[in-house]
Amino acid sequence: MSQVIEKNKNRMWLWLLITTGFFVLMPLWAPEMWLHLAIEIFIVALFAMSLNMILGRAGLPSFGHACFYAVGGYAFAILVVKLKLPAFIGLLAAPFISGLFAVIIGYFSIRLTGIHFAILTMGFGQIVWAIAHKWYSFTGGDDGITGIPIPAILKQPEVFYYLAFIMLIVSSAVIKVVQDSAFGQTIVAVRENRERVTFSGLKVWHHLLLNFVIAGFFAGIAGALLAMVNRSVFADFGYWTSSAAVVLMCILGGVGSFVGPMVGAVIITLLEHYISIYTYYWQMILGCLIIILIMFMPGGICGYIQEKLQKNEPGA
């Protein structure tokens, strides 16, 4: 048994090395559009991973996660455009502002579970969206904030590509460390049996709130990066359909696996980009994909592969 795990672990490291190498070398040969798509994928993957801390690890169905994404983007845009701060300070500050929002929203919603949690997070998300959509003097209303100035060097897609890539790697490493820590294990224990953990004397909701805030923090990084790469930010980033899209990525990739959300982000981003070239009815295709996914692969792609691997390992 332990040998099998060891073998899987080695294999995992190998795969990790190959994928990292692939992405590091990509700017050398790939056409420019691929870099743009890759940048978007890195950002969305980070966003999906941050959601998975709530959705997968804590087992709480958040339908308002996009609001932290939008807050991150707006925080960056407002700091850079209105306060004329340098872009890197904006990028540093944005996740903390998102985290602050997560504290407030988490405080109200984290004590609930299941459907109630979903509805409350969605409600708060919609409120943030409504504020961004309406407050013209501060957020630019539904026109958003466009033409955000960023350092000239970052306008080169290769440079931004590496920035987004490094942000993704560092953030996912931090998320991994958090998940493997005692704290992370407690979150999973709460998901499995909330009462038992409560009886053990732990303040469950403190842990869940902290977890929620960390997730909001990383969503803020993703949002700030998106605002940077688009040079613009819009209220629609925080609309509930945006939250639903990222939930879909997590479920598609597999919430039970660390790389699952990333896989989901890759597939959905590419699919959306290429489907809409060939048809105006992309929502139909996306909808069917969701239905098929939930009917036949509720564990997501990574869950499905894991299941297969376990079956094929003799003696496992």
Binding site: Q283, M284, L289, I290, I294
Partner: peptide, 20 residues
Amino acid sequence: KPAIYILLMTYGVLLVTYDL
């Protein structure tokens, strides 16, 4: 099953309905 499946499923149905 966990609430998330029905949430996502009905969202999928909404998208299909819209295009239908």
